[in-house]
C-alpha cells in the first residue's frame, strides 16, 4: 500500500531540473509559491501556468507520473472547488438559480482560481523538489541556506544530520513494521475488527516492538558514528560540495523577473475572465 504513493518520492534522472543546484531550487520554490499566490488577473495566472508548464517539461518526469501524484488529492481539489462555487455570493444576478442552489459568476471565478492555485502548488513542488531532488541534496541545501543562523546558535548542522538519518531509516522502519505485523498476525492477532478503541489497543503489539527496535538501532548507530570519528559539524568537510553554475543564477533571475511580471499584470486586471464568462454564457 505504501508503495503506491508517488507524492513526495524521488525519481532519479538527468534532466535540467535534476542537475540544478538544490539550494536554488529551494529559493525558486519560494518564489514560485509567491507567484501562485500573488497572481490575480487572468494574464498573471496565465504567466504562472506558463512557468508551471516549463518546469514540468524541464523536470523530464513523465506526465503519467505527475498525474499519479495528483490523484490522491482529487477529492480535496473537487471539494474546495465546489465550496467556492456554491458558497461565494456575488453582486450581480446569479448565473444559475435553482431552488437553494445559486451560482454567481464570482463563484465560478473563485472556483477556477482555486483549482489552478492548488494544482500549481502540487505540481510545482513535485517537479521542483520532491521528484527531482534527492533527500540528501535537499537536507544539504537546507543546511547551507540556513547556515547564517549558526551565528545565533541555532543547531543547523545537527538538525540537518537528524533529518538525513531519519530519511535513511524510513525504508528500514517500514520494512520492520511489515515484519512485525506479519509476526503478530501469525499469532492470530486481529487488527481489523472492533471499534476504534479496540483497533487502537490492537496496535500495541506492533508499536512496542517497533519502538524498542528503533531505540536499539539508535544506540548502535550512535556507537558506529562515534567509531567513525563523528563529533558534530565543527571542522567537517564534504565529499559532494554544491556548486552553483551560471545557469542556476539565470534560472533564479528569470523566476524573479516573472514575479515582477505578475505584479505588473495584476494591475491590468482586464476584464478578461468577465468577458470570457460572458462569451461562454451568453
Amino acid at each position: 500500500m505504501l508503495k503506491d504513493v508517488t507524492f513526495g518520492q524521488y525519481f532519479p534522472g538527468n534532466s535540467l531540473l535534476h542537475k540544478a543546484d538544490a539550494r536554488f531550487k529551494v529559493l525558486i520554490l519560494i518564489e514560485y509559491i509567491v507567484i501562485v499566490l500573488l497572481a490575480n488577473s487572468a494574464y498573471a495566472v496565465g504567466l504562472g501556468l506558463l512557468l508551471t508548464a516549463f518546469l514540468m517539461v524541464f523536470s523530464g518526469v513523465k506526465i503519467r507520473l505527475l498525474l499519479k501524484s495528483v490523484k490522491p488529492l482529487i477529492f480535496v481539489l473537487v471539494f474546495t472547488c465546489l465550496i467556492n462555487l456554491f458558497l461565494t455570493r456575488g453582486s450581480g444576478a446569479p448565473l444559475v438559480d435553482w431552488s437553494f442552489i445559486k451560482i454567481y459568476k464570482e463563484g465560478v471565478r473563485n472556483a477556477i482560481a482555486m483549482l489552478i492555485r492548488l494544482l500549481s502548488l502540487v505540481l510545482g513542488t513535485s517537479v521542483l523538489i520532491s521528484f527531482t531532488t534527492s533527500p540528501l541534496e535537499l537536507t544539504d541545501a537546507l543546511e547551507s541556506l540556513l547556515s547564517p543562523l549558526k551565528k545565533i546558535k541555532v543547531p543547523v548542522h545537527e538538525f540537518a544530520m537528524m533529518m538525513s538519518i531519519a530519511l535513511r531509516f524510513i525504508p528500514t522502519l517500514i520494512e520492520e513494521t511489515n515484519k512485525i505485523i506479519s509476526a503478530q498476525k501469525a499469532r492470530c492477532a486481529d487488527f481489523d475488527s472492533g471499534n476504534i478503541f479496540k483497533k487502537l489497543k490492537a496496535m500495541v503489539p506492533i508499536l512496542i516492538p517497533l519502538f524498542v527496535s528503533a531505540v536499539r538501532r539508535a544506540e548502535e548507530l550512535a556507537d558506529a558514528m562515534e567509531c567513525r570519528c563523528y563529533h558534530g559539524g565543527k571542522g567537517r568537510t564534504k565529499l559532494n560540495v554544491m556548486h552553483a553554475k551560471l545557469r542556476d543564477y539565470i534560472f533564479l533571475l528569470a523566476v524573479t523577473a516573472i514575479i515582477a511580471g505578475v505584479v505588473v499584470l495584476n494591475r491590468y486586471d482586464a476584464s478578461f475572465i468577465k468577458n470570457l464568462i460572458k462569451d461562454l454564457v451568453f
Binding site: 520492520e176 512485525i180 506479519s182 499469532r187 492470530c188 516492538p209
Partner: peptide, 16 residues
C-alpha cells in the same frame, strides 16, 4: 493460523 504456527527470522523482535 492457530493450526499452522509460523516463526519468522529473529522472532525476538516481536516480543512486546
Amino acid at each position: 493460523r492457530s493450526q499452522v504456527g509460523l516463526v519468522f527470522q529473529y522472532p525476538e523482535y516481536q516480543l512486546f
